[in-house]
Structure formats: structure tokens, C-alpha cells
Amino acid sequence: MRRPGLWLGLAAVCAWSLAPFLWQLLTSVKPAAELEALPPFLPGAITLVHYEAIFAGHPFARLLLNSFIVSALATLLALGFGSLAGFALAKLRPPGRAATLAAVVALSMLPPVATVSPLFLLASAAGLRDTLVGLVLVYAGFALPLAVWLMAQFFRGVPDALYIAARVDGCSAAGAFVKVMLPLAVPGLTATGLLVFVFCWNEFLYALTLTSSMAARTVPVGIALFPGLHEVPWGEIAAGSVIATLPPVALAIVFQRRVLAGLTAGALKG
């Protein structure tokens, strides 16, 4: 392809990917009066009133805290359980591992709406509805298939010789896992952890149905149910959107290569 055409195409791809977010960013710093007409496109003056409003008028900080706690704990749980299982499947090679892995992959395709009614009843019965613990368990369970799958892929790539040497030196399987395999698995753990964290941060349906108050409500639910008395507060929604977007987008951009590796490994390696 000729160079100018290529650059034009690439610029169009970037513009198309970024435009809605940039528009929201502009909206979030426009004075309220300027939101009532279009044009102007660019804000006449930059204001932070919408950001102040969501933290003062609405408990946005609490939503952020809930989201961070739930996403971080669910990610840790999924990584811990997932790497143990992935290691056992890839290196201990138990009989029935192919069937186990197939079942795990099948569970990863489960549509959330299919289990929302049973989980609602189960969480109510267990006293876990509208609690952070309840969301952590559900998110970790839903992220586990991906975590097990990616970690099994990753451990498969670690030479058997390393594992066997640790066993010959007298380590138990668990000891070899902690002392030898886990340190080697840091890149795999990072990639898996990033995907799981972003997945948990963005999850909506379970957060909507399993929470009913600020005790456990997360950012996506707060954004979806944004309170508006008479008219929709577009400036405040835009400010909330920008803040909700920063953690996952920052992670995705900073750890770009790990995210890409995890995304493609999750889908392509059979």
C-alpha cells in the first residue's frame, strides 16, 4: 500500500477509536451553560464543577472504593485458584485433564443472565446479597475459567525439566509450584490478572442484581443508575464516565503487550 494512504487509514482508525471518549472528556469540563447548545464544540472555559459535583452530591468515592475492593480481591482469588489448577492440569497431567479443561472452557461461555436468578436466591439465602464478599465470590468464579485456561497454557510452556528437578531435590508438588513454577509464571500472572481485573471492573449485570444499596454498589451500576431529578445531568455523567474509564484504560495502555498476549492466547490457542 502507498504510504500516504496507509497513514490516512491509521489516523482514521485512531480517530474513530478515541473520538467518543474525547468528546466525553470535553463534555466533562464544559460549563453547564455550554452543554445546552451545539456548537460550540470546544469549551469556552474549562471547569471542574462536574467533577466536584459527583464527589460532593453523589457518593462517587464510595462507588470507586467498592469497585476497587471487589475487582482487586476477585482478581487475587482467581489468580490464586487459577494458577494452582492451571499448574496441576499442565504439569501433573492427571487423567481426565482434557475433559476438565473442556468443562472449564464451556463454563467461560456461560451467559450471565442464565445464572442471575439462582445466584440472587442463593446469595439471599447465604446472607451475601448486597455485600462486597458476595460480589467477590461471583466475580472470581466467573473469571476462573479464563484464569485456569490462560495459566494452563502458560505452564505448558515452562520446561518439564525445571519441575522434575525441583521434585528430585525433594520438593512436594505444592512446594515445587510455590518455589519454582510461580516465580517463572509472573508474566502469565500479570497478563491474566490484567484481563480479570478489567473484566471485574466493567461487570454490570451481577452488580446490578446482587446489590441494592451503597454498601456494595460498583461504579458501572452508579453510572447506569445516575440520578437526575428533572433533567439528565450530562456534565456529571461525563465526569463519572471519565473517572470510571481511567483505571482499565490506563492498565490496558501501560501493560499493552501483556494484555494483547493474554487476549489472543485466550482465544486462539486450542
Binding site: S17, L38, I237, T245, P248
Partner: peptide
């Protein structure tokens, strides 16, 4: 460019729906 392309993927769906809802506003969008 990968960084730019990853943005829509990383944004929570609920948030991107709000962004588009604003762009879809009949009068002000």
C-alpha cells in the same frame, strides 16, 4: 496505535453506552 485501539475495548460497556447516549441526544447530540 495499539494503545488507541485498546481504548474502546477497555472502557466499561455501561460507560461507553452513556457516551453514545450523549452523542445520540436528539437536540444536543
Amino acid at each position: 496505535i495499539y494503545g488507541a485501539v485498546l481504548v474502546p475495548w477497555a472502557i466499561p460497556t455501561v460507560v461507553s453506552a452513556r457516551m453514545w447516549e450523549w452523542m445520540y441526544q436528539p437536540e444536543l447530540g
